[in-house]
Nucleic acid binder design. Sequence first.
DNA 1: TCCTATAACCTGTCTGACAAGCAGACAAGT
DNA 2: ACTTGTCTGCTTGTCAGACAGGTTATAGGA
Lengths: 242, 242
Amino acid sequence: MFMKANGKKLYEEVAGQIKHLIETKQLNSGDMLPSEEEMSKSIGVGRSTIREALRSLELIGLVETKRGRGTFVKTADVKAFNDILLDSIKLLDVDSYHVYEIDRLLEPNAARLLAQRAKDEHIEMLESILQKMDESLKSGGSGEVESLAFHKAIFSALDNPFLDIIFDLTKNVHQKDRKAIFNVTDRARKTYEEHYKIFEAIKSRDGAKAYRYMEKHLTKVGDVYDKIFSFKYSGEIDREEE
Amino acid sequence: MFMKANGKKLYEEVAGQIKHLIETKQLNSGDMLPSEEEMSKSIGVGRSTIREALRSLELIGLVETKRGRGTFVKTADVKAFNDILLDSIKLLDVDSYHVYEIDRLLEPNAARLLAQRAKDEHIEMLESILQKMDESLKSGGSGEVESLAFHKAIFSALDNPFLDIIFDLTKNVHQKDRKAIFNVTDRARKTYEEHYKIFEAIKSRDGAKAYRYMEKHLTKVGDVYDKIFSFKYSGEIDREEE
DNA sequence: TCCTATAACCTGTCTGACAAGCAGACAAGT
DNA sequence: ACTTGTCTGCTTGTCAGACAGGTTATAGGA
């Protein structure tokens, strides 16, 4: 009821306390928190303060409040984390080029690593994605979704939640530009071919080759980027590449 | 006052509306939102509902509320974004190995890229960090801070805010393990030497060499990881490497 | 002109109230 | 024994009103 003075707002203090309980496992996943009124009394703050604290914890996915039942400690899963992240990153004006650069740094090595440790199921997954892309292209589709899925599958197969986060992060940012790329003549078909080569390298467990083909693929994509950007700035566009 | 049925809570609805205003630039960075009471009246919900909505927006760094003044649209800067992120990621139990893997995938290429485009100031920066580490080690320090700074400097020099985010993300997670690594005999001194080689490669603009040395360095670090982990699980520790 | 008191706003927090969702108990009907 | 309906107590969702304590602009006095 009194210890403040630090400039912190009360509800932040309360949220911090609850968070601490969870971090130190005094409250475990699935546990029910005391009711709002109870906490209000025991901590000595108003119910509205408790509620504001709970709202912030709910937002970061730490707890879940169910009407009529109570508030429960939630398993802080990567997905929830990701959602918040994607939500806020839209507001950052990250240059699309920066995102491309991350891909450029990361994906070749990711492909190599996957080539070294891919299981059969991963290979099958990639193959089925490629097949879908082929079908999509043949039936007049853009193939964009499948292309994205291919890259995502490589990351997912590595079974590293962090990679998934980074992927979603980057994907989300250059969504617009990705569309633009697929509008360039023949890019979709060539993407398919490049993907296929990467796939073959992974399937034959040839890490070095996977790395090289991924790098080549990204270089091509980068070229298209360059053209689109120069189009943006100079008003000219060159539709054919290489 | 009645049209819900979607299960969404009112304050979520309100938060969404405000967010939309900001995303569509109807409210710009720095703008002041109407007062809570005003919004309460104009939207037709209670002030507490407005407040809960604002709390969630504040948490994701969209707005900032100042007591006695009002609520303002915040500039979504990378740093703020990062803070939020770091705050929530602690709750995820990401395996330290996953983070190491990211470094492994990313840093060699980062070193190569920097070798290709480093400016003199970057070189100087790296050199000064190395010098500080040397001094620290000679005077009995752990050199841990400087080691971290070296890696961070490489990312920073690439001038890609995304990389900084990823770096902070990973750094934050395996903070504990990093300490453990530096406790292994001679690891600090060897780290210094390995860093120095990377530095020389970057200085001489030799991308391939920078890549290789960084990879070697990380492999060594990985070996230590393995030992520490096996220590954790088997109760044995091996203090000397190679 | 400069300073200060103060009014007008604003957020922070508390309290009390009521609606509405949920779960378990219990009784009634089959 | 099994289903069904109702009741009751608990919990969250939302609202309205009140007051404390910052912040800012300004009117009025030195």
